[in-house]
Design a protein around this nucleic acid. Structure first.
Lengths: 331, 331
DNA sequence: CACCCGCTTGCACCCGGTAGCAAACAGAAA
DNA sequence: TTTCTGTTTGCTACCGGGTGCAAGCGGGTG
């Protein structure tokens, strides 16, 4: 197994010093046309490319960005990851996909990312407590952190999110206009629900409309199955007369699970008996099987902005962007 | 912004040499209990952890594995990525998620991964031509490559897949037993369809049963929308009497799109008018809205094995594993 | 022809670790 | 006390490049 060629070897082959080789691979470096040509020829012959590891060590910049994800049940993560990796790669960076779970928590992950000298950390939809941060004295020297698609709970850590207040206002306005008056809200894991703020805005806006009673209940986690289970429990425990006439779910995947239970198992009609609203506009929401009313986040723009902040083109600051209400047959 | 502490600084603080510091962080190294304690104390005070970048440069092993993905439309990628990242992290490695697309093709990606000195490359569901490989003279010195969830088209590059032959045999047996006699098959992008071998086996096994005529048509890409479109075109162009009585789709996401068209738009009954079969057992297949018959790949085992081969515990060789037929109401 | 200036090139040193050798040290055996 | 052996420690060399300085080189100018 032949090893990679080094600048030193190319230098010998081209009859120059290794520094000249390095200059040939450094855009804007001071080097004569003639030597550059010689070097590039020798490099091509030896199949040489600079070792990014060594470069990173010397320049103190790896062009690697750690992306923390703790919820793989939401299929909406995938198009986000697609956009994110594509835009990062367009900037000459790559994503380190880090799975946050019980065996590998935020603290481990942050330590690890730090040891790998990543240029930035993106908390993609994951919540992280500032207390934990200060406990570790990681405040300084830590790679810059950014929160994507969730509110930041940490002072000084900017977040790029969809404007939850605006989104929920549009949704509640729409539901009110459609005549619904007995709203319900299904959250995912309780701990995180505050981070999304969606529930609070939902409740508040209904109150503005004079509707004080919003049924709130929670699914075990963010998955279709959990959404179905939560809906089942609710329907079992609640008399038909007492039931909500519209159920908003914290995200699409919960909503799809809930719809499935409402319509498929309980035989209720959506939206006649119970209307359903989701959040994210996952691809299958548009299918005729579901036709779920939902709210689309401005994915491309969010990613664009967070990458702008990472590369330094944009000032790091919390940004909230307006999304789009997608009205379908479920309301 | 304080920089990370180095071994040198810890050494000064502890009153030893930097090599002693390093030994304190090297399991099994020869170091006195007393000095180890002193070093660890000083390290804790300075918040020191070894720089993995520098270590990688010296040891020639980064503990990073590049994962190539070129199809983010299939939600089934997500649980695979979850398992993959979790298992990699349990082994002290991390995944570099690399998006293969028209702007960043396999050649770029491989070059990039090579420059980053990754320990291995996993082609996760992506096809790569061996000609391209040899064109680049990357044969030697390239990081070891493995194909996950697709057949390997490259000599010497092992693949870990679900046994397509067995899977299709079980599926065709099941369909035959249920009485279907006019099968159809929907592929995704034509170029790749051979890589999955599913279509060929499907056709072959029907031939064994005496059914020579299998309608084959293709979706533009692997997405629900493309599946719906392909189904729509087929249904438009085919007289009801000539239509297939069962449609197998190359994967679930195509099947869900197709079902949606068949049932939702055309008002045909599944499975009475046309039965549908998918492949992967994506979470929503089990929903009562779809209840799609499909085939589940042994995800955990596949990931376990590919990681075994990467870490060297297992001999690198192509492995095909049996999956599980999941019969639901769509057949 | 001397001088000055700008482009090129080589060099020492640095990034933060690792590997392997050799010296220093300690305790046990002679 | 000396010798031997095993542990502990420091050192040189190295992984593959990057940085800033200074010397080399060439041509234009006075």
């Amino acid at each position: 197994m032949r090893k990679r060629a080094t600048a030193r070897e190319v230098a010998d082959a081209a009859g120059v010093s290794k520094w000249t080789v390095i200059r040939a691979f450094t855009p804007g470096a001071s080097i004569a046309e003639e030597s550059k040509r010689k070097v590039l020829e020798a490099a091509a012959a030896l199949n040489y490319t600079p070792n990014l590891l060594a470069r990173s060590l010397a320049t103190n910049s790896t062009h690697q960005v750690a992306v923390f994800v703790d919820d793989f049940a939401n299929p909406q993560k995938l198009p986000f990851l697609e956009t994110l990796t594509e835009r990062l790669q367009a900037e000459g960076m790559v994503a380190l996909l880090i799975n946050i779970n019980t065996h590998f928590d935020h603290v481990h992950a942050l330590l690890h990312a730090d040891q790998r000298q990543v240029d930035a950390v993106i908390l993609f939809g994951t919540a992280f407590r500032s207390e934990t941060l200060s406990d570790l004295q990681l405040g300084r020297g830590t790679p810059p952190m950014f929160v994507l698609a969730r509110d930041s709970q940490i002072e000084g850590v900017p977040a790029v999110t969809c404007d939850a207040e605006l989104a929920l206002r549009e949704i509640v306005d729409h539901l009110f206009e459609r005549g619904y008056r007995r709203p319900g809200f299904m959250t995912g894991a309780t701990v995180l629900s505050t981070a999304l703020r969606r529930r609070q805005h939902f409740v508040d806006f209904w109150k503005e409309k004079g509707v004080d009673d919003v049924s709130v209940f929670s699914a075990e986690k963010y998955s279709a199955e959990a959404g179905a289970e939560a809906a089942r429990n609710y329907l079992k425990q609640t008399e038909p007369a007492d039931r909500v006439d519209v159920l908003m779910c914290e995200n699409d995947i919960l909503a799809l699970g809930a719809m499935d239970e409402i319509h498929g198992r309980f035989g209720l009609r959506v939206p006649h008996d119970i209307a359903v609203v989701g959040f994210d506009n996952y691809e299958l929401c548009g299918s005729s099987a579901y036709s779920l009313t939902t709210y689309e986040q401005p994915r491309d723009e969010m990613v664009q902005i967070i990458i702008g902040m990472i590369t330094g083109r944009l000032e790091p600051e919390t940004v909230t962007l307006p999304g789009t209400l997608i009205v379908r047959k479920s309301t």
